[in-house]
């Protein structure tokens, strides 16, 4: 990991991004997430959103909460550095949540299962073993409410996404895109290779925590037979 190459830049007149460059790395993401939790705790009144991504964190602010001549770059830089110093202290004991998710890897529920296996010259059982063996990190949420970008999958099952996305992917579909894996929280258009499906509800708008998976979570999939799958 390389934490020394970073940059703070403006994303328009209402956001700043602290960016550690083009790397997908669990340790960098861990640092990003601890910074995110610290900033959430501090709850600055001018902060509208804090959005962690793979190797960056973006602060969306209310420009009208400052006077017209305020130097927002200085304010955000101080806010970030303060949070970093505090997050550094609490980093050691920050515990991560592990979520276990049952997945049915069956061709009737996973339209790309057989083509992905064929592409990699492996059988379905090997694919299941490789996909369930690792614990994945939720690097960030995006694309859809509650959609978690997880990684990284074994390179023996890493598969590029479809060139043309499907018009509709069913809720709970488990997919692979490159070295990422993810679950469609509800039916939506999408281009990931679909290798399984879960009946676990990942998005529940009536709950105060509508999204089950959050940045920083650890996720472990386990295989269930189709008889146990209830959508």
């Amino acid at each position: 990991m390389n934490l020394s190459a970073y940059e703070l830049y403006a994303c328009g007149d209402h956001a700043y991004t602290l960016d550690f460059g083009q790397q997908i790395d669990a340790e960098i993401n861990h640092f990003i997430i601890s910074l995110f939790h610290q900033l959430q705790k501090e709850a600055h009144p001018y902060v509208l959103d804090i959005i962690p991504a793979y190797s960056s964190i973006t602060i969306v602010y209310d420009a009208l909460s400052f006077s017209v001549n305020a130097d927002t770059a200085i304010i955000i830089r101080q806010c970030l550095t303060d949070a970093m110093l505090k997050a550094g202290k609490t980093n050691a004991d920050s515990s991560t949540r592990t979520v276990r998710i049952p997945v049915c890897y069956h061709p009737s529920l996973a339209p790309d299962l057989e083509t992905v296996c064929h592409y990699h010259q492996i059988d379905i059982d090997t694919l299941i073993a490789l996909h369930t063996r690792k614990t994945y990190r939720v690097f960030m949420n995006g694309f859809l409410p509650g959609f978690a970008y997880m990684g990284s999958v074994d390179e023996r099952i890493a598969t590029a996404r479809h060139m043309t996305p499907r018009k509709m992917v069913p809720e709970g579909s488990v997919g692979i895109a490159g070295e990422q894996t993810g679950i469609y929280p509800f039916a939506s258009p999408g281009g990931w290779q679909l290798i399984g499906r879960t009946a676990v509800k990942l998005f529940d708008p009536s709950s105060t925590t509508p999204c089950m998976l959050q940045p920083g979570d650890e996720v472990q999939f386990y295989s269930i037979p189709i008889e146990h799958f209830k959508a």
Partner: peptide
Amino acid sequence: VELVSTAVTRGT
């Protein structure tokens, strides 16, 4: 350029 995803905002 291949970019790792970052946050985007209104107006980007």
